[in-house]
Design a binder for these strands. Sequence first.
DNA 1: TATTGTTATACTCTATAACTATA
DNA 2: TATAGTTATAGAGTATAACAATA
Lengths: 167, 167
Amino acid sequence: MAQQAQFEELARQLSAFGAVKRDLGRILPSDCPAGSAGVLTLLSRHGDMRMSKLAELLSVDMSVTSRHVTHVAERGWIERAPDPADKRSRILRLTPAGEAKVCELSRRSTELLAERLSDWSDDEVGQLIRLMTRLRASFGDCRTTHSRATPTGATAPVIETTTRTPA
Amino acid sequence: MAQQAQFEELARQLSAFGAVKRDLGRILPSDCPAGSAGVLTLLSRHGDMRMSKLAELLSVDMSVTSRHVTHVAERGWIERAPDPADKRSRILRLTPAGEAKVCELSRRSTELLAERLSDWSDDEVGQLIRLMTRLRASFGDCRTTHSRATPTGATAPVIETTTRTPA
DNA sequence: TATTGTTATACTCTATAACTATA
DNA sequence: TATAGTTATAGAGTATAACAATA
């Protein structure tokens, strides 16, 4: 358990961290804002999925996800195929053009980070990634569904507060 | 120098980090959004300062700073005193009500972090703070003015790209 | 009746540019 | 002519709520 002064400092760092995100956003293609880039990157990493799953990975409301998805679909970077198992759902899938876009995005962000972090060691970058991942987990675990089947078939009784507008 | 796969992962973490910031933003008082909270916190930490200095600390354009400052001034949390040394400038100063607001903000964010990071060690939180600070520096150093006098009186010849709208 | 996804609306944050008043 | 600060405008991101289609 850390101390109060540390939490205040951490809150300050989180508040100021937007500047880094904005810098990273400035290198994006003009037709692919951050929201669209997030959609493409996650589809590339995790493969085809439904809207609800994507909204969960993005940690935003599904209404927001829907807009981002519409944007990238209009540009031909993804396809929305009907889900044979549930006619309400749609399966999102990267098109070849979308995959190309993902490569471009990856190249741009990697170049910027390689330039900015040229004096960072491999280990330091790894440490930061590890701690950021853990911080996200510490926040996300209290609202993301964790009702995944265990090896015994039991499910964790976690209250599910999805990324859904309360109806 | 880190590897390409690490940079891709770091870019993903940065992209997803907005969720943590949003969680932190949800605990703010309804009359004090994140922009206002940033102004108050920085004034509390660094003491009285001018608009331009505040904009630099916030890493946003001065036009943005001006709006946030107007918001907190209208609520009586800061005062804008004329600068005797330069009639164009104004000195920003926290009022007692502003100091009280800072305490409330600090209390709220500290409580949330203490709850979410209850299983983090003191050292881990310190590590995260250190690495986030360094990452911000690695990004900010290429646009913040560093023309500070050295012990010998010389100044670093760094191109100054301030937080100013190009006129 | 509950869930998946869409759309309309409103709010916050940001940058750009034009404007003022001083320097 | 240049700088400090303000304001107007536009764009992106998000949440809430109402809605349609399906389970």
